[in-house]
Design a protein around this nucleic acid. Sequence first.
RNA 1: GGGCGUAUAACUCAGCGGUAGAGUGCUACCUUCACACGGUAGAAGUCCCAGGUUCGAAUCCUGGUACGCCCACCA
Length: 870
Amino acid sequence: MREMDKAFDFRTAQARWYAVWEEAKVFEAKPDSGKQPWSIVIPPPNITGNLHMGHALVNTLHDILTRFKRAQGFDALWVPGTDHAGIATQMMVERQLKAEGKTRHDLTRAEFEARIWAWKEQNQGAIEHQLKRMGAGVDWSRNRFTLDPALNRAVRHVFVEAYKQGRIYRGPRMIQWDPALQTALSDLEVKHEERRGKLWHLRYPLADGSGGIVVATTRPETMLGDTAVAVHPDDARYTAVVGKLLDHPITGRQIPVVADSFVDPEFGTGCVKLTPAHDPNDFAAGQRLKLPSLTVIGFDAKMTADAGKYAGLDRFEARKRIVADLEELGVLVKVEDHTSKVALSDRSGAVLEPLVSDQWFMDVKEAAAKALEAVRSGAIQFTPEHHVAVWEHWLTNIQDWCISRQLVWGHRIPAWTCGACSHLHVEMEAPAACAKCGSTELTQDPDTLDTWFSSALWPFSAFGWPDATPDLKRYYPTSVLITGYDILFFWVARMAMAGLTWMGEVPFRKVYFNSLVRDASGQKMSKTKGNVIDPLEVMDEYGTDALRFSLAIMAAPGTDIAMSPARLEASRNFCNKLWNAARFVQMNLTDEVTLALEPAFGEAEFWMAGRLRSELGAVTEALEAFRFHDAADRLYHLVYDDFCGTYIELAKVQLTSGTAAQKAAILHFLDLLLRALHPFVPFLTEEIHEAVLAGRLKAGEPALLAERAWPLGDPVLAREGGDPALIPQFQEALSTFLRLKAENGVDPAKRVAALCSLRALEPFAEALKAIARLEGVSFVDGDLSAPSRAVAVVGRGAVALELAGLKDPAAEKAKLEKEREKLEKELAALRGRLDNPRYLEKAPADEVEKAKALAEEKTARLAQVVALLG
RNA sequence: GGGCGUAUAACUCAGCGGUAGAGUGCUACCUUCACACGGUAGAAGUCCCAGGUUCGAAUCCUGGUACGCCCACCA
């Protein structure tokens, strides 16, 4: 038998076990096992990514659940994978090119794409390696990449089918254009930021010379594209001018005054210039009123040829020039300070330009209705539930989704246009010739799809859909989804919609939204703030198990996690504590002590088994309800307080000099704890399991802890007996002896004689003597008070120390007075309740019983205190 | 303009109708043969404020205050 080190060496454990688990195929799904399937898919990390605290949390929670479910006897499958992350990845490689003094336009599309693939091959391994370091028990034989040919087939399938059904269409629409990235974005990729700006009031003269009207605008540069000025139809101030023509102050073009109810008469002057090509509102109004559209800002964010003398200027430069010109022309009536929300690209940070452009869209109204219903009916359940409100709001007001991106890296849109007759072909494969005119001059659409388009299919594409694979049948729908609420719309909603549309069933039955990991003072971690805690460094410094345990114990649903060195230290210490308890057990085991041996039970064992029974039951419930923090907290105290603090202390005699059967009881308890803790701290527990339990397992038990069963059903837990009140009473007596010593300034090591009036504790005399370092404990009936003794109340009796000459009477009296005050206060509160007839009448019976028992106990205790005070 | 969340010990957070909890920190003591990454004892809280419901509220309701987040086309 290997001797265990004095402290847990997490470095060794972390380095060893993952390979062993993989080798033993512990994490691989067992479709033929006859077990009930339980499945979860990873939120695929971006290949651009490095493991950060968010990943560490999500992966820890995934792993806890997967290991827990496997131990419970499920065929547990956790599917890993990575995401191609369209924009993010392309940006990385473009940055690389820039460093070489090139741009992507120096390469052909094929060359550029090849370059990104090469980058992917080089980097994908990093995030996968980091997953392994976390101990993430994923089934690597089912690893997927969102751009794999198989997943591409799923994407094309959805695209083609949706196109046929009319759910996907192409057309000129107003979209948010990112001039920096040179691509269209979906509404979700737009962030609004408040910016201080101006509101310019401009006079547009009437063409008939009968005066003019004043419009207010925040973007004067777009006025070059004005094709009308609108007022509210009921606005009496302007009824006379509706239908008249205005001379555009700069271009001189004549534009009409129109009436539309979207105009807010209260805002500005009540007149708004209409620029259908450059504003979503105006675009809609333009469509309603059949106004022409004039594009004056291009995709490069510079003024177009139609902007006349401003052509070629950057849009913001043009604004300055136009304002100056307007002032010169004398049409600038007023300039007000005005803060307004500016639309920014979530990706590049650039100010977006609303532009009309030919893009592909997906109509998701029907799917959204299904997703709404799925949550309303409970087919999908959210934890925490409050996210339902946001879900409802978004899906109820959902707009068509712009799915095309002007990027190279991604799923290419399966659409071909005939060069001869312009006929559009949307097909799974490239057509050989035009179906309409027979021309072979076909060009594929250069665009790719929004990354989230493929992510939406992940819960079934990862299982081989559109083929009806055995995996798909067995593991879809997945059991649960764990992810951040920040991608509720991007991902969760879209998966729900896609799953319901293409599989006819929800993709997951439950969704757990994990917390945000913040720094020690609750601040969001960011590189610029410099407060980022790197999980890789944490794993080196405190150990992976400490990191995982810290994350788990702080993962209360709906609240953010404040990660701190103090918390990590506490977890590391916890790991070491368990290690040392195990080490102590192991040191005292002889070869014949095994789990096959029938354990001998005494009072301490019945108590310990009772604690394990109730706590492991609570831990199981907590995990089922995603209360990871609750589960971890209970295990923490079970180990620290119950197992180490109380039980091992009590069992020291059995452990060092007891029978094999007595030692077997201790071994059993350790074994149960290891099995319960394994999902949280897998490296530590596997290491202990090997050191302590190797060769002591029952025949037929798997040698790896990772393969052993969840402890809840263990027969040892079912053993009941003994007096459940005894051990708590022992603890109180012990603690009181120690307190009396401390209060009277007695050296803890000084052996003094002790007395106890609680006969039930006689069997624990030796333990009390040893732990409290007493000369001995005599059990006597009746009053213990005497001038030479320090006395205190324990339960319904008392204990005393023989302290002739050492006693501090003032301290003792003060303590007793304090206790009397406290008891009187508590009793007053209890009596207040019990004397209230309405309480007795309305409160539940068991509640009243509890209060009565408590009052009775406290009364008895108070009597003891009063007696001691004399 | 809507919606959501959070306010509990010095700090970070649990608890969410029936005697105020944890971790860290703090004070004092202890190197007792598993562990100083340890042990023992202890101090520390108008549970944001104001109303209400209830026999009873930190916990439920209403209103307020302070932070934080999300959504929204008001030029």
